[in-house]
Design a protein around this nucleic acid. Structure first.
Lengths: 188, 188
DNA sequence: GTCTATACCTCGATAGAC
DNA sequence: GTCTATCGAGGTATAGAC
């Protein structure tokens, strides 16, 4: 096992645990157990717990960018691409009901902790915001593209928050259908 | 200082700190310092930290019920009352940008902690949900009142989440105006 | 590069004086 | 009813053997 492999493994498991349990509630012992290394070994790869958080955020930024690029390359029109975004809620429904949106809950937790990495985490939202604005611009809504992007982003966050609290699948399905109809209405 | 006074004071400060910093990040030492009592004295009033959480949730349920009752008694129509609900976002804007929605963030944190009190915290949402459904029913939307209530509740949660992440006042104002227009359109 | 052992701190919680 | 003193567990982080 090279150092890079172990490091990547740590970041991957930390990413999952930070999402499932929260950043503060996840101890280095949890991560070490998941990666099957000792707690001491951890400090060969990272100097502090905050450094892991930074690495996790960078990892999420990378995977998010890759996902958006993939959607962009898949050859549909802007409407199809916005539906890809909404489909995140469909595909991750179970996880969202259990742990919320990975982006929204991380930003929320870091805000409460008054953590310096809060602005880095918010860049994850910015990635979606700018990408969505690009799609709405392509649909001929260049003037209010950013407002439309924020609106849709906010709708997904609201659905995720209520999904966690109520675990009401009917509500999720209805809101998703409503969002799709709203998007279609923007272009018509 | 009677025991009831001290207890009430503890719950009041715990309520504030749980909102500002989160439940887990707030230690008994924080609360004791805010109330200006010793850590030991704490255990005369509560046996565990979880018991404080229960008391905080009950306090929030009580103050929320009182607020909804006040709105109901204030003598406007259902449309005015729904606007009172939306105005929470206006009046608590600064706090929401700093710490999010007190209900949404508590439910989210307790879900990640897999905490038994999570369902109690969700009752705070249920209070708003049922009250809003009553208003929509009064507006002649009895058949889909609950769906409309959940939709509006979700919208406010989305705004709160993005407000914390972006601290973008323009976005908050725009979404509030949009929500008001949406409510008006439901009754027309 | 990974380990064991451990330092040091803060946490929730308890005991007992006043 | 409030205090001081303290316990044991578990947190982050470090030292040094292998």
């Amino acid at each position: 096992m090279t150092a890079a492999d172990t490091r990547q493994h740590i970041v991957q498991e930390a990413d999952r645990l930070f999402y499932e349990q929260g950043f503060e509630a996840t101890s280095l012992a949890h991560i070490a157990a998941a990666v099957q290394i000792s707690r001491g070994n951890f400090y060969y790869h990272f100097r502090t717990k905050d450094e892991i958080l930074d690495a996790v955020i960078i990892r999420r930024l990378d995977t998010t960018r890759a996902m958006l690029d993939r959607w962009q390359a898949e050859g549909g029109d802007a409407l199809d691409r916005i539906f890809c975004f909404i489909d995140i809620l469909v595909m991750n429904r179970a996880k969202i009901m259990a742990h919320g949106c990975p982006v929204g809950t991380l930003c929320g937790e870091l805000a409460k902790l008054d953590h310096a990495a809060g602005s880095d985490a918010a860049q994850l939202f910015t990635l979606f915001r700018d990408w969505l604005a690009g799609q709405f611009a392509a649909l001929g809504r260049r003037r209010d593209a950013d407002a439309l992007a924020l609106h849709l982003l906010g709708r997904t966050q609201g659905v995720a928050t209520l999904a966690t609290a109520f675990r009401d699948e009917t509500h999720i399905d209805r809101e998703i259908a409503d969002m799709r109809a709203w998007v279609r209405a923007q272009t018509a």
